[in-house]
Nucleic acid binder design. Structure first.
Lengths: 193, 193
DNA sequence: CGAAAAGTTGACGCTTCTCAACCTGCGTGG
DNA sequence: CCACGCAGGTTGAGAAGCGTCAACTTTTCG
């Protein structure tokens, strides 16, 4: 049933939870009392500005851990699709987890890799053109889907509005870029024939 | 001598180190064997793209911890100015630190706050205009300088080229924005008189 | 079947990047 | 002590990528 790679944290007690599409799992600033490992679906981590602007900083896919905050949530988490996840009590993770080097290493690694990914994401947002950002995103998505052993996607699990808010561009621009990439792909398919 | 607020990690063994201006303290991908707490000066954390583009993701100021990575460095760190720091062996931090809830909480909090700051930084890079980014940066810098109990700055410790690479804009644009803000400030000083 | 949400397409304008020349402060060496 | 050179910063002109607004189409869901 679970094709996900095993993690050390799985040995800790946890409960299955389910969130409907669009559900706010936690908001930035909320008191943190648990962490999650995603089993099915997609979650977006985001921050919101005072002007109502939304910036998505990470798409969580099956197998990923999210929500590790010692006190308050550093981002908001919303269910992009219907979501199945495992919930770990923060208290038990802190007590039992930190006494196990394997688990604390795993959590620490998770945090540093998330930071690294975000750093490179900024670099791309700033230095890449709109089309390059979109191409890059779909390459990343395909890799992740394949690595998770999921069936190859027909359509991304998240709406274009979310992708636009992740890549830092207007939905209209994203739509135009997708079209442009589709046309380019059809052309090189014709050239091959 | 040390006006910096005390941290739990200070109780662990550490050694003073000094880096000259411009020194590469560690590079992204390097094997990680220590973490640092900055005492004097300024450090930039950055990632580099294949095209030679540089993205600064964090300015480290006195009192800050940086370099906590379990295996390999998730960013590069370079000395913006001459730097004095305390070096903590990663081994001792992992062994002794994780057995102390205070220290592990401190490190975990440090990591989550860094992620949160970076998330909001992306949001600002994407949604603010160039002038607003610059104004926001100087407000942040003044707050940090004041909070650290340092003498108020005449000039930022980092060159404009670094600020530009942090805010994701061209140095020329940054220069124009600074000029624009200076003119605006002089005007409202005249209005007050 | 109908209404609302999501996505598409077009026209237009503005912010910012790029390129180039120039200025300025500072350290070096004659 | 002065002249030189270099890195960092400034200023201008021009181009263009992308955001904004508006209208339209498609999909989704009750």
């Amino acid at each position: 049933m679970t094709p996900l790679p095993g993690l050390a944290i799985d040995s800790l007690k946890h409960w299955p939870v389910r969130f409907p599409k669009g559900h706010l799992i936690f908001d930035e600033g909320d008191v943190s009392d648990c962490i999650y490992r995603l089993q099915r679906g997609c979650v977006r981590l985001q921050v919101n500005s005072v002007h109502g602007n939304r910036q998505i900083v990470q798409f969580v896919l099956p197998g990923d851990i999210f929500g590790l905050c010692p006190e308050r949530r550093n981002t908001a988490a919303e269910a992009v699709t219907t979501v199945m996840a495992h919930r770990f009590s923060l208290k038990s993770v802190m007590e039992e987890g930190l006494s196990s080097p394997r688990i604390s290493l795993e959590l620490l690694r998770n945090a540093t890799v998330a930071y690294q990914d975000l750093a490179h994401h900024i670099e791309k947002i700033v230095h890449l053109s709109a089309v390059e950002k979109v191409r890059d995103f779909y390459v990343w998505l395909d890799q992740r889907v394949e690595a998770a052993g999921l069936p190859p996607r027909r359509r991304p699990p998240m709406p274009q509005r979310d992708i636009a808010d992740y890549l830092g561009m207007a939905p209209e621009t994203l739509s135009r870029c997708i079209r442009q990439l589709r046309v380019a792909r059809e052309n090189e398919a014709l050239d091959a024939a």
